[in-house]
Simulated assay, not measured.
Amino acid sequence: MHQLIASPYNGTFLVARPGARAGIQIPLALYEQLASLAESSGPLPVWLLDTARAAWGLELTGRPARTVLLVRPETRFGYGRATYEINKGCNFNCEHCYLAERKFEGLPWDGKVRLLELLRDAGVLWLQFTGGEPLIDRDFMDAYAFAHRSGMLIEILTNGSRLHRPDIIEMLRKLPPHKVTVSLYGATPDSFDSLTRRKGAFKLVERGLVAARKAGIALEMALIITKHNAHEAEAMRAFADRYGAKRTEYGAISPTYSGTPEPLAVQAPGFLDKSSVFKGCPAGHTFFHVDPHGLATMCKVGRENPVDLMTEGLDGLFRLPGIADAQMLRTGGCGGCQLSRTCRVCRPLAKAYQEAKAPLNTYCQHGNEEMLR
């Protein structure tokens, strides 16, 4: 199993180690040197041995290159990242969920293999498994192992309910992910179980976090602030800190991405996340989203005019930048807006709010007098 990955990435070349945050950028000449050694029984170059020792505490002296190094080839595409919604099914029933329907369906195993091969051949280095809840998919472990062995650095976006399972923990220990991001819906069973509408959910997630920390798996937490847990926001921060997890807070609840308003009912007043101005996004240009059926879109929000990778193959991705650019045009009441330079919401998400007939103060500066001053 490879210890290091050398790969093109958005016009640069990187050396990375699965499960480690640190990586290095290298020039084309050194990338080509590694490519020439990747299948050989010869030693690694001294500069890479020194780098591995300094960056990751990894001693590779005397190891044949082919046993520790995987070199990803250059491709015709500029896609370095992708998200794979392996299944929309979920074992929670969260009030705030952006999926209007959570049907347990998707590609059969041979289809998943072909899709992962397409993602690899598109140049995807960073891959996020998401859902629904990815860990409940019957093929998740096999899909994860396939992606890892293909030289992808993997993030799992999970509710954490299956993270305690010994088979999953053992796989993640042997094939370490870049990170596992667990959604935190409260600091107590009452708030957590209320939002997820699943009795015992909090205890399941705690078990998973304990197991992951014990196994040394890199953890992050997404703190989802709603009316059920806003009073526990500080306790949620402390909860994440106890597990040594980097944390990010999300206080803006969106409608479903198909434009229905139900999730907005759990918005907590005072926790709208409008801290940064939207300055553009490379969605559809350097990264993309794939749904359970192999339909590629600019992102999980902008799902218009999908590219069917299973029928079109990789050539369909050449159409994706144009599809993305069309969805970023300001329409539906946003065209000509004098506040567009300080808008906090991307156009596809604004469209979802508009289709849900959401109050302006849930997403737009025109609905908040203080922001207009």
Rank of each mutant, 00 (worst) to 15 (best):
D190I: 13
A82S: 14
E232V: 13
T188P: 03
E304S: 15
M371W: 13
T181R: 15
R63P: 01
G11Q: 14
F318W: 15
G336P: 01
Q25A: 10
V290S: 11
V71L: 03
A283S: 07
T342I: 14
R207Q: 01
M141C: 08
E59D: 04
V307K: 07
L219T: 05
L49Q: 14
W126L: 12
L70T: 02
E155L: 12
F192A: 11
R330V: 02
F318Y: 14
M236K: 04
L118E: 12
S150P: 10
T297R: 04
S194V: 02
I168R: 03
Y243P: 01
A145Y: 13
C299L: 05
V182S: 12
P166G: 03
I253Y: 07
R120V: 06
A350C: 14
M236W: 02
A233L: 13
L119V: 06
G19T: 13
L264Q: 05
E369C: 01
A230G: 04
G294S: 00
I169W: 02
L69R: 01
R207V: 00
R165F: 04
M141H: 08
V301M: 05
S275G: 11
C346N: 00
R242E: 09
T196P: 01
T256K: 05
V124K: 00
R347V: 15
C97M: 02
T75C: 14
S40F: 08
A240S: 14
A54S: 15
A147M: 11
A143K: 13
Y250G: 07
P18M: 11
P269V: 06
D325F: 03
A283E: 05
S258Q: 08
E95M: 06
P255R: 02
P321E: 09
V113K: 13
Q25W: 08
L317K: 03
N305M: 14
T286I: 12
T311H: 10
L60C: 03
A358G: 09
K279L: 07
F192Y: 14
A233T: 07
R63C: 06
T130R: 00
K279A: 04
P134L: 02
M1I: 11
T12F: 12
I168P: 07
V345N: 10
F92M: 12
E304F: 15
D137C: 08
G151M: 11
K274S: 04
L58V: 06
M1S: 09
D315R: 04
